[in-house]
Nucleic acid binder design. Structure first.
Lengths: 407, 407
DNA sequence: TTTCTTTGTTTAGTAACTGAAGAATCCTCG
DNA sequence: CGAGGATTCTTCAGTTACTAAACAAAGAAA
């Protein structure tokens, strides 16, 4: 053993780093207990992480009868990540540090649906401006997370952005990103099972099961907006009737409010009959403000929406056996105080496994920009805690086999 | 390297064995391609499995220009497992081989809720009779799977049965067992995401995500029976209104049928007003027979139930991004032909991710005893393909840390 | 001071893989 | 039939990432 520091297995390094992040502060002995690895291994792995600058020693714990434990913490400013949320109406950029804390933010009016090269160049310039505004060296930025409601439609967009910015780009769903952001920021436990209920213009959910993000085979897991709450309800664009989104989504709330002349005037709704995203978001905000000012009809509309959403959330919690439900996204940022108690009450009252454990319902502390923060967290996770590749298990085993069997 | 056969890492051995099982028949080269391991490693692992008698060489594939591949198969009769399903009304015992095929079966009237020692002794005798009936040596039986609707209530029961039979006992939920049984028997792909919709007296679902069983933190995942389909519907014992189970469960179908004098007479219903499990199951079977004979009212009742169930199944598929839905359990064994087309149509029409992939809906070939078979499959899986323990990630990191932080 | 407890490091040993060489088997074609 | 190429499977030295155990360091207790 004459060489320098020994390189450790990637997944072990990642697991230890993830534990340091999740714990906030932990000692080597704590890591031994948490991982089941021996002290020697932890010693080597931690030395590697300290050499890379990812982890730092930050003081001592009180003695428990012998030598004091040296406490370890993530070096939050060792690396950074860019998160970009492509909304229908806005583009939000954030730069976060290793801890998922926002160190810079830009928000611009959206590009609509145009994907021409001008948009790419504009975005690359804005990412540059974001980075320059805090003077972070380029090589300490791990990558760029690009999230939207339909990431599959932005594959080429992501590649172009990768070329234009020189940063590795990862794509994902905005609701999934929000969930990963909550997980990374440490609000929920390391191995907990939770969903991030994302309320923007539509309704979605990001799902983390036992600490692992669940996206589903085609990335559509957590599609809660088309949960049926009334088999004879109004028709939905999905082909079914009485979907949660049609009954209680922000767009539905806004449509109902616009039909109410008095409320429209009192709240100052601007949208007319349009279903475009920007006016819907603006009008939903206006309705929420009216409710806060004490407008009973606005409050009633929101509470009706909350009751439906609570029933949908209960279905989600029942199916997934959730421990935690985090409310996030721009609409919850505005109207969360109306929704939160209604969802809490419903899950306390009728969650099927409530005898085994409660479902803790919380409002995200950063609901307004959860997806952009989550986009950055996806980069942090994919670069620092890659899921162990392990064994590839292809769907089609027969393809590897010669077609005909003899004797 | 003078020693005998080298022992291989447990999880690799398990992964290879699982691939052999899932593929049915595969060569060493096929395993190399499927796992990403090298030929040398596969050679060693396969030799070990052959030495243990778990795998056998069973002929050759046609040549692709060089040496023919030696085909490997699970040695189905190398080991056995006992599966026991504690229903409310019946106890079903099966003995299966490694492939999950039933080699012996016993069914007895249930024990009700009594858990006295007499029941344990009777069950131990019946397990003995099951094993003796096919003359399998005791040491080739891996263990006993005991499944029921509420496994948490049978912990002591399981321990007693372990002592009485001398076999290791594992407990699980009956719907989860059914899903594992389908997975083990190879009807669905090795890495597929699917649910087993279990229709007994109630409604449940077992969930397998990307080839891994998902139980949820308290074992309640897949609780689909209390999905709300009508926020103003009839009250349910769970505390909510309009639950799928109340609207469309077999018990609800039977209640509706009993209220129909003409149908009661035509179908020969026996249950009166009781909601006990055995009469409900009998009357549900009678209604199904009447529907098959052409009784329009019986058929209408079942189709109404199927339409509700289809909507609930769609919600499940949407939330989990399912690829496959297997219909199983005693009630689907009887009335599956009515339910299957209705569920298929609903998922073809309104599954939200249908542009990405369809949901394949199938009737289990062994729906009637799916849970008992699955109970045996759980034993096979837990003994032969234990999930890699990997790193323990405790929920409460702080507990391992001294309480006070200094400087 | 001495002794004990606890934390963290070092080091030899080992399990489980990889990579490369070689043996075995089968096909093709002169 | 036999040479030569293709493919499959085995063998084995080398590498990696761990463990176990001895050791060193730091504080508490006496």
């Amino acid at each position: 053993m004459s060489g320098p520091a020994r390189v450790t297995h990637a997944s072990t390094r990642a697991a230890v780093l993830d534990l340091v992040r999740a714990a906030g502060m932990i000692s080597r002995v704590g890591l031994v207990n948490a991982t089941g690895l021996t002290g020697g291994t932890i010693s080597t792995v931690v030395r590697g992480l300290i050499d890379e600058g990812l982890v730092a020693e930050t003081g001592h714990a009180e003695s428990t009868g012998g030598k004091r434990r040296v406490m370890l913490q993530l070096n939050h400013f060792a690396r950074y990540a860019v998160g970009v949320h492509l909304d229908e109406a806005r583009i939000t950029y954030v730069l976060t540090n290793l801890g998922g804390a926002v160190v810079a933010r830009i928000s611009r009016a959206g590009c609509g649906e145009a994907e021409d090269s001008g948009v790419i160049e504009r975005m690359a310039r804005e990412v540059d401006a974001l980075i320059d505004s805090v003077g972070v060296e380029r090589d300490r930025i791990l990558g760029l997370g690009l999230v939207s409601a339909r990431p599959a439609e932005h594959l080429g967009f992501g590649q172009a952005l990768e070329r234009a910015t020189g940063l590795p780009v990862v794509l994902d769903n905005d609701a999934t990103a929000a969930a990963i952001g909550e997980h990374w920021s440490g609000g929920v436990g390391a191995t907990s099972t939770f969903a991030a209920l994302y309320l923007g213009t539509g309704i979605g959910a990001g799902v983390v099961l036992g600490g692992t993000t669940y996206r589903g085979p085609s990335g559509h897991a957590g599609e809660i907006g088309h949960t049926c709450l009334d088999v004879d309800g109004p028709e939905c664009r999905c082909g079914a009737k009485g979907c949660l989104e049609v009954l209680a989504g922000p767009a539905a709330v806004v449509t109902q409010a616009r039909a109410d002349r008095a409320l429209s005037r009192a709240a100052g709704l601007v949208g007319g009959r349009t279903r475009a995203a920007a006016p819907v978001a603006a009008d939903f905000a206006a309705i929420s403000r009216a409710a806060r000012r004490g407008n009973a009809r606005a409050l009633a509309l929101l509470e009706r929406s909350a009751r439906y959403l609570a029933v949908g959330a209960r279905t989600l919690a029942n199916v997934l056996d959730l421990e935690v439900l985090v409310l996030t996204g721009p609409s919850f940022a505005i109207a969360g105080s109306v929704y939160l108690p209604v969802l809490r009450a419903e899950l306390d009252r009728a969650f099927i496994a409530r005898d085994a454990h409660p479902v803790s319902v919380r409002l995200s502390p950063s609901a307004a920009s959860a997806s952009a923060i989550g986009a950055a967290a996806i980069v942090l996770q994919s670069e620092l805690v890659p899921r162990q590749a392990g064994l590839r298990l292809p769907d089609d085993l027969a393809a590897d086999e010669p077609p005909v069997f003899v004797r």
